[in-house]
Design a binder for these strands. Structure first.
Lengths: 159, 159
DNA sequence: TTAATATATGTAGTCTACTACATATATTTG
DNA sequence: CAAATATATGTAGTAGACTACATATATTAA
């Protein structure tokens, strides 16, 4: 075991990221193996527009939990791929409304079985004593109650 | 609840990264609140050199689980900050040996209480039904046995 | 009804990791 | 021992997120 893994908790951010990268890379390969040209980073937008067919930029950003600039750059790529298209909102001229193109809808259809495979593979992978998905949800809940910074500040006073 | 959180497992990579970012940002603020000029990304290198005082570039990379180019760019920053220094290995001329400077050692001394605070705050944060740290370790173990791609491939055959 | 404020979108540049490629030295093999 | 291979380090460019700032339209308040 290396020093970092031993440091445990202190390098938790690093280890979360490492795990994320690993899963994402393999995810890309899974799509590829199914002959589908799709990048995992596109998933949140596509999945969201599949379930809520017409949304503005900021609405999508909120749904996927990204900032709006990050969202915009994803939208640009997806428009370039012709998987989504946009139109001005006639009521509110500031808004740009996004939706899947027909090509996008067909792709979603092709991806559904892949999503099932990914779901099952992930479920199997994280089905250990401490379930990773539930742990994430629980910690997200904890952070909502009290930020990590506030927790550290509270500990500080105790010392 | 938004669509992505509902999609659960499928967006697990995204959520791991989001959580990592959140923790890292607050971590930076905690150092700052203690009057310490230290970036969380430096932690793995500094912590490693603190426990293993003289290491080459690749040895550090392996310890912290990064690629060597990533490691080199961290080392560059830390040398600029005069927290570490390097010298050629006299036996193997290819190698560059790194170690903490006196400034680096003093900083580690100052950071120890902060590390304690961070440890306690993290422990408290992840002490839920499913412990995040243990979940990470368990999933890392699972991936060692069988990659995520291989798991998906196996599921594929079943369908 | 104008002025102030809020919201929606967009651009530029940054951050922290990566991959791909290049070079220098060491080690192994024919 | 020379050639092939392996290892150590380094550089350049990429990826996927971010923050900070800018602009246009809508809403609220004086």
């Amino acid at each position: 075991m290396n020093v970092i893994d031993e440091s445990g908790i202190l390098a938790i951010a690093t280890r979360l990221q490492r795990l994320s990268d690993q899963i994402r890379k393999d995810g890309f390969q899974v799509y590829k193996a199914h002959g589908i040209d799709f990048e995992p980073k596109w998933f949140p937008v596509i999945y969201t527009l599949f379930h809520k067919p017409v949304l503005s930029v900021v609405e999508i950003a909120n749904e996927i939990g990204y900032t709006h600039p990050s969202t915009i750059s994803l939208l640009k790529e997806l428009e370039k791929e012709k998987l989504i298209r946009s139109k001005k909102d006639k009521i509110d001229e500031r808004k740009r409304l996004l939706q899947l193109t027909e090509k996008g809808q067909i792709l979603v259809g092709q991806m559904q079985p892949v999503w099932d495979v990914l779901k099952m593979a992930t479920a199997e992978m994280i089905d250990t004593e401490n379930n990773l998905m539930r742990a994430i949800e629980e910690v997200e809940g904890q952070l909502k109650e009290k930020s990590f910074f506030d927790r550290a500040a509270a500990q500080m006073k105790r010392v």
